[in-house]
Amino acid sequence: MSITVKNLDYTYPSGVAALNNVSLKINKGEHIAIMGANGAGKTTLIKHFNGLLKPTKGHVLVNDIDTITSSVAEMAKIVGFVFQNPDHQLFLTTVEEEIKFGPTNFNFPEEQIQRDMEKVVTFLNLKNLLKRSPFSLSEGERKRVALASVLVMNPEILILDEPTMGQDAIQKRNIAKMIEELNQQGRTIALVTHDIEFVAEYQPRVVAMTEGRVIADGMAKDVLTNLEVLTKTKLRPPQITALAWEIANQKQSFPKDVITISEMKTKLLALER
């Protein structure tokens, strides 16, 4: 499953031009992070991946299906979209109903629904909560229920909007673990995030956006250490990178493209000798 964005323009009905000639290819099984300042067009871009928005100009192909020709509901079977706020999608009286809602709505066979539900429930550790009301759960648990209600439809592509926003360290680690596992199962993952330390740690491919355009696309190590890109996207470098720059200021030979702690350690120990 791949996503191909070809010369995409999008202008909102209010007249705001949000995307300007964006081209991008996300291959099957890739893990990519889309980064940029608020208003750069990140959310507008990912809303094209499941057809919530249709291009003003250009095309978005999801596995050769042009999103213009397809409804969001049809796309939902291929592309799972998890939004930032779980409260925006939970509305049923038990966690179980909530998880089964999507596939039941699509008239999937009962045995399949049961099987898929058990799988995601085990994966996301929700077994004890099935009979509870989603509204009685903690924020972190609700986030997992919302994710389960999307994963249960077995989407091959998963889109996540700001998955780590407002999460504590343990929740973040769990989210990262989940994303990694889903990616290893062969799912394509695209996420929008501001969390540069998170990206530095897990190192997906990074797409940087400013004012509706893609200004950089490559390995985390290259994009996150590019001062020009960081300035334009109003991102601060990862702490480790900032430290490397500060050291390089005084010791010209020191490499500037360091983003992980272990790499930094190696470079520092080399410095001593």
Binding site: V72, K77, Q89, F106
Partner: peptide, 10 residues
């Protein structure tokens, strides 16, 4: 936002 989230669930 709710409409977007629910439409994405089909």
């Amino acid at each position: 936002q709710i409409i977007d989230a629910q439409m994405s669930r089909g």
